[in-house]
Design a protein around this nucleic acid. Structure first.
Lengths: 112, 112
DNA sequence: CCACATACTATGTGATACACAGTATAGAGA
DNA sequence: TCTCTATACTGTGTATCACATAGTATGTGG
């Protein structure tokens, strides 16, 4: 395994944990899977379909999201938005994110 | 599963990806496992022994760290420090960390 | 009419943090 | 001396989850 591959793998791990946070935060506005993916992509968070859809189902199963099949134009889409529980969880997660950031900053500050 | 448990699980996932980054960054100074753990704990990054030691071995196996058994005082300890490859990887990871931060900030900024 | 974007589903795999348990030494206080 | 705690590391099993890959199906522009 070369250095490039190692970095790539660590990069994936790094993003992995941040995905639920990003998804929850983004779903303060209603989105369907595809538009959510586009939105996150634009903000620099590439997320595979095979990652996003199961994640959405998982978060819904946990009661953090609600969803609804609708056909606004012609196609049927599953629209997701943050549930009340999701809002609470999101707020806690944001706090955790800040804490984590401070910790990492503390480690990086020393020598960098 | 209640809201508390969900948050806790997501929190773990969040930190998970950041651990290699923190470990690599901290090992710009030499440390043995125990002192490394103490150091990270102080900075707010609690890391289990069962997580840290395997992680160290993995990073060494990938050539990012070098280690050496030594008995400075009485006890024998395995001292770790960043290898040259580790330095490169660390620098890339820091860049990725900043990118991720910007992305998350972009998502959070909208409504929070 | 056909290539492409859209929109979602399904399955298998590999990586890995953590739980839990175990081994062993050193130092301090009773 | 005995025991307790901190130190220091190893080993095994499990659950979770992102990703790879493939498949289904519909709308749209040329």
């Amino acid at each position: 395994m070369n250095s490039q591959e190692i970095v790539e793998k660590l990069r994936l791990e790094l993003r992995r944990g941040a995905l639920p946070l990003a998804v929850l935060a983004q779903l303060q506005e209603e989105h369907y899977g595809y538009s959510l993916r586009r939105e996150l992509n634009q903000k620099g968070l590439e997320i595979d379909e095979g990652t996003l859809y199961p994640l959405l189902r998982r978060l819904e199963k946990q009661g953090l999201l609600t969803s609804e099949w609708r056909s606004d134009d012609k196609r049927k889409k599953r629209y997701y938005r943050l549930a009340e529980l999701g809002q609470e969880v999101l707020e806690s997660l944001i706090v955790e994110w800040r804490v984590l950031n401070d910790s990492i900053d503390a480690v990086l500050k020393e020598k960098k």
